[in-house]
Design a binder for these strands. Structure first.
Lengths: 144, 144
DNA sequence: ATGAGAATGGGAATGATTCTCAATGCGTCG
DNA sequence: CGACGCATTGAGAATCATTCCCATTCTCAT
């Protein structure tokens, strides 16, 4: 996987190492394809102590490899940085907290980007990115 | 203000009261016009104990009058519910955490809504709303 | 008034996350 | 190969926003 190359290099460039645990975390997040909470990351996995998981997620975040997203339920979520996965959005269930990745049509995305750029410029904001999430009830929660 | 009418009624309908502290919180948020953290709400104000502020904000939230937004810096932010203020977005500085309200052009908003509705339906999500935030560097932070 | 239930506020408790630190691993250079 | 330097590990302690507790106070309906 080219992903690990990238990761190793980025860490090395600041004197850090791409250890087994770090690779493992990257794998977990890559495989999941959705933002995971720490409990979800750790649950059912051996030799992945909480403190190490937290520390390494933070490490990977400052290396720009993963992104931490605050969430309403008290548990932050972690996902691969968009630089690695491509830009995307989220569809989240406000009842059960489930999150899934979502891509929106490129034309809309482009228009969004253009418009937001203008608005940001007007407000004197620099280097803007956006975050767009859908919040609703998933099939399971919606049918109750 | 019609706002307080609405608030009083909603609380009353579930056997709660629109007390002085609650009205005060609503006023603070209405006047601010941007999401405030609890420290920001309480700072410099007398007779507004932390525990009461937290409790009442939670109360107002379950009454649907205010919205609580998780944020990266550890402090949740509170703002009036969109039902009271109208739909809007945020422009937030990733360095200093400052947040300001932002309105986007109605046509874009409509197109966004239509598209997202379709996507939500495809994913079997119900009663969807969206959240769109701009994240960048404010003038002060950007010029360093 | 008066009683029932809502609200208050000070402090204790909770719980996710971060910090600490002794022990260990890894790489490099002689 | 050996050994030093430095990053990493992991178990538990510490932090800190937020929630909970509860005795007291307030409000409203009768």
């Amino acid at each position: 996987m080219e992903l690990h190359q990238e990761a190793a290099e980025r860490l090395a460039s600041s004197g850090r190492r791409y250890t087994r645990t770090r690779r493992r975390l990257v794998d977990i997040l890559a495989k999941a394809g959705m933002p995971l909470s720490l409990p979800a990351i750790v649950r059912g996995r051996k030799n992945l102590p909480q403190s190490s998981a937290y520390r390494n997620l933070a490490e990977l975040e400052t290396a720009g490899l993963i992104r931490r997203v605050a969430s309403e339920d008290g548990f932050a979520r972690y996902e691969l940085a968009e630089e690695l996965t491509g830009h995307h959005h989220h569809l989240m269930c406000s009842r059960c907290g489930q999150v899934q990745d979502l891509h929106i049509p490129a034309p809309l995305e482009r228009r969004l980007d253009r418009t937001l750029d203008v608005l940001a410029r007007e407000a004197a904001f620099a280097t803007v990115r956006h975050r767009l999430d859908l919040i609703g009830l998933c099939r399971a929660c919606g049918s109750t």
